[in-house]
Nucleic acid binder design. Sequence first.
DNA 1: AGGGGTAATTGGTCTGACCAATGACCGCCG
DNA 2: CGGCGGTCATTGGTCAGACCAATTACCCCT
Lengths: 172, 172
Amino acid sequence: MEKKRNAFETNISAIKTMIEQDGFVPGDRIPSERELAERLSISRPSVREALRTLAYLGIIETRHGGGSFLLNRDDHTYIQIIAQFLVTGDSKFEDLAGTLRLLEQAAFVQLADVSILEAHVDSDAAFRETLIATIDNDLFERIWRQVNAFYQSFDQGELYTRAEREAFLKRS
Amino acid sequence: MEKKRNAFETNISAIKTMIEQDGFVPGDRIPSERELAERLSISRPSVREALRTLAYLGIIETRHGGGSFLLNRDDHTYIQIIAQFLVTGDSKFEDLAGTLRLLEQAAFVQLADVSILEAHVDSDAAFRETLIATIDNDLFERIWRQVNAFYQSFDQGELYTRAEREAFLKRS
DNA sequence: AGGGGTAATTGGTCTGACCAATGACCGCCG
DNA sequence: CGGCGGTCATTGGTCAGACCAATTACCCCT
């Protein structure tokens, strides 16, 4: 038995699970704090502690007097929030760039027609964006987008040099 | 003037600022909830809402009866949070398998010595696990693990047939 | 049917209380 | 004198209840 997670994280999971099971979609209003407390058999302060964390991560938005609303994934700010607590030059920064390169290399291997990339060889951002779009896999694209957002919070430069992008095209 | 930040985020910043100004280092015990409430002129529930969020992000750790302690930066909680929210309930099942194949193909392209896979050609799980381990990228591995766990919650079978695994080896 | 005002709902914050776990303090005994 | 054990203050965990503020829903009157 290793399920000794504290009650707080259990509450966050419970709320997340309930949101999924009830089929809420971005924009929907989730149950009120008082109703959540009753349904989960915990007190309102405990519900609030969980909701405040979810709001801070950008999962939900609360409006005074209005209620709590599910946000779009694009509005999730936890990437930036988390990055805010990390010092620049964190040892794991290499993992970010490495993961991005891996994801994009995977996309490239699947790419049948390389010609659609030629038009974007001038722009690092457009080149990589186009490359990922060819995959047509929502989950894969979402993962790439989140990692990329995190990466850019540390480094605004280009991931590949122009020479590297051209090498992509020749390798076909 | 766009300082319309709500009180909650103000409290988090205030606590973070106080921690910095007082020169706390990882491992130190920060003031108690009651003392923080008094020094910041807010109530204990408000302090707790902020502290719980900091704890969820891995900034601090709380011990029942002991106090709250500053954590090291490299506890990787942020990576777990990223992974936890990357894969959510509305991912299409086909996307799951497709993403797994993409991730593993990316790992395979980087693989220099294919021979270490030969010993695991009998087991789908061991084969793929070994493949990912060769990458030596913590973030990449966690992402893969999360996607794989979610995939297995739907399908307990093998991702590749034995013939496909053997094809991997021959393609080197 | 439209508009306005009131009441209900909901988040925001606080007070106070009690429990549970931890740790420091102190006195007792060897 | 020193180690040991128990007591109690401290601290986090949780809850109930209250009150305010903002929003929203509703109903009534025109």
